[in-house]
């Protein structure tokens, strides 16, 4: 009897989530028809991009609980791979994107593997150091990367070049990217893999004692995370057609990916999206509105939100809503 109920409620759980995602997808697909102002679309593109990157971070930082503050390394690798392959060899950025993602995944695996022995903050510091080394190397390797000057891609629109007139194509690509990350996250959540990640996040030693190969699963997680982040970096290259170490290897971005996921709700599939939807427009609009007069206010607010969320809603906004719902249901049930 209990089994049956469990199966049914599990199906229901998935059902409502699936419907939600579908609704989200429809809204996303339809929005450009209502708001076709390029500026608005630019903001939406950034929202989707950050949501995707935060979602990618979430896989290792949220589900597996290994906080990395060096994810910009993967972003930058994806960005530079795409740019350089196109500029030097004329390889289509679509392919470059995949290759960039793969490179990022490989590097993720290589550098994380030895670091997984470290726990908590030490792992975090190691990821920070790696990202910094990558940034410094990208400046030093001037013949290859152009150094601080960066890489410029000439505007030459065409599908093969992954360059378009107008914002709409970029919008849809960003939307798809975000949904890709979302679907991967949901797949992880519902799979045994995700189960193992949760286990090792909650209690690393106990999981090992139970025979779970924590190293293997962490490796998978960070490789997937790195790949997806690399895709985001590649997209960024095509959006701006100009990359430099300051933009794509900066620790600010690492922090931002993590913070967006945390504010929205780390360890949930929807959290990063929620986080990005709130934080990204806030950042852009505040800067636009206040700009010269109150330089930096947008970040003060961002920082304050982070502190508040982390202190009072450690499971992020998604967690907050779940708690709220649970409390209301509990009260109504006990009546």
């Amino acid at each position: 009897m209990t089994n049956l109920t469990n199966t049914i409620s599990k199906k229901n759980k998935h059902f409502s989530m699936n419907v939600f995602i579908l609704v989200l997808a429809i809204i996303g697909a339809v929005l450009p028809l209502i708001w076709d102002n390029p500026y608005t679309m630019q903001i939406l593109i950034l929202i989707f991009l950050y949501a995707a990157a935060a979602g990618a971070w979430n896989i290792i930082g949220g589900y597996a609980g290994q906080v990395s503050l060096g994810h910009v390394a993967f972003f930058g690798l994806g960005a530079y791979t795409t740019a350089l392959l196109y500029n030097f060899f004329g390889i289509s950025p679509w392919i470059g994107m995949i290759l960039g993602g793969i490179l990022a995944a490989v590097v993720a695996g290589l550098i994380s593997y030895p670091c997984f022995r470290l726990r908590g903050p030490f792992f975090t510091l190691a990821t920070l150091a790696f990202a910094e080394v990558l940034r410094l190397l990208s400046i030093w390797a001037r013949p290859l990367t152009g150094g601080q000057v960066g890489v410029t891609i000439l505007f030459n629109p065409g599908f093969k070049n992954f360059q378009f007139f107008g914002k709409t194509p970029y919008y849809y690509i960003a939307l798809i990217l975000m949904f890709l990350v979302l679907i991967v996250s949901i797949w992880i959540e519902r799979s045994k893999f995700g189960y193992y990640l949760t286990a090792l996040k909650e209690d690393h030693d106990a999981s090992e004692a139970l025979g779970i190969n924590t190293a293997k699963y962490k490796l998978y997680a960070i490789a997937i995370s790195g790949f997806l982040t690399g895709l985001c970096g590649a997209f960024y290259t095509q959006l701006l057609l100009f990359i430099e170490p300051l933009s794509v290897f900066t620790s600010h971005l690492s922090n931002q990916f993590a913070m967006i996921a945390v504010v929205g709700g780390a360890g949930t599939a929807v959290g990063p999206i929620l986080g990005s939807v709130i934080i990204t427009p806030l950042n852009e609009l505040l800067r636009g509105a206040l700009g010269g007069d109150f330089q930096g206010l947008n970040f003060v607010i961002f920082g304050a939100i982070l502190i508040l969320v982390v202190t009072f809603m450690p499971n992020g906004l998604v967690g907050f809503f779940k708690d709220m719902k649970a409390k209301i249901n509990h009260r109504s049930e006990s009546k």
């Binding site: 609980g65 903050p121 003060v300 920082g303 304050a304 502190i307 982390v310 450690p314």
Partner: peptide
């Protein structure tokens, strides 16, 4: 948040750093 996982504390101080440096800028 003393009892929270170390990761939470990381973000709290990260946020503090953001606030302080931008307050100084302002």
């Amino acid at each position: 948040i003393q009892e929270s996982p170390a990761t939470i504390k990381i973000f709290s101080t990260l946020g503090l750093g953001l606030v302080l440096s931008n307050l100084a800028l302002m």
